[in-house]
Simulated scan of single mutants.
Amino acid sequence: MKVLKTYNSKVSSQKENICFLVKDIMKFLSDSSDVSEDVLFEIKVILNELLQNAIKHGNKEDASKSVEVSVGITADNHVYLIVEDEGEGYDLDCVCAKEEVPEEVTDVCDLKENGRGILIVKNLCDRIRLNKKGNKVIVFKSLK
Rank of each mutant, 00 (worst) to 15 (best):
M1N: 08
M1F: 05
K2W: 13
L4Y: 12
T6Q: 12
Y7N: 09
S9H: 11
K10W: 00
K10I: 08
V11H: 08
V11Q: 12
S12C: 01
S13H: 07
S13K: 09
Q14T: 15
Q14P: 10
Q14D: 15
K15G: 13
E16Q: 14
E16T: 09
N17V: 09
N17H: 07
I18D: 09
I18S: 10
F20M: 13
L21C: 08
L21W: 11
L21I: 11
V22T: 02
V22D: 01
K23T: 15
K23E: 12
I25A: 03
M26A: 07
M26K: 15
F28Q: 04
V35E: 08
E37H: 06
E37P: 02
E37I: 04
E37R: 11
D38R: 10
V39P: 03
L40V: 00
F41S: 07
E42R: 15
K44F: 13
V45L: 12
I46R: 08
I46T: 06
N48K: 06
N48Q: 05
E49Q: 07
Q52G: 07
N53G: 03
A54M: 05
A54S: 02
I55D: 08
K56W: 06
H57G: 09
H57K: 07
H57C: 13
N59D: 11
K60N: 14
E61Y: 12
D62Q: 00
S66C: 14
S66P: 14
V69N: 02
V69C: 08
S70A: 10
V71S: 03
V71I: 04
T74S: 09
T74I: 04
A75I: 15
N77W: 01
N77F: 09
V79M: 13
L81M: 05
L81S: 06
I82T: 06
I82S: 09
V83G: 03
V83R: 01
V83M: 02
E84R: 09
E86F: 00
G87A: 06
G87Y: 03
E88M: 05
G89F: 00
G89H: 00
G89Q: 02
D91H: 02
D93W: 01
D93R: 04
D93F: 01
C94L: 10
C94D: 13
V95N: 07
V95H: 10
V95Y: 05
A97G: 15
K98G: 06
E100Q: 13
V101P: 00
P102Q: 12
E103I: 13
E103Y: 10
E103T: 11
E104H: 14
V105R: 04
T106P: 00
T106K: 14
V108E: 01
C109H: 13
C109V: 12
C109F: 15
C109S: 11
D110G: 04
K112G: 02
E113T: 14
E113P: 15
N114W: 08
G115R: 04
R116P: 14
G117E: 05
I118Q: 14
L119Y: 10
L119H: 08
I120F: 03
I120G: 08
V121M: 11
N123A: 14
L124N: 03
L124I: 02
L124K: 12
D126P: 11
R127E: 15
I128Q: 03
R129S: 12
R129I: 10
R129Y: 14
N135Y: 01
N135P: 10
N135G: 05
K136E: 07
V137G: 06
I138G: 08
V139N: 04
F140D: 12
S142V: 03
L143S: 01
K144W: 02
K144T: 11
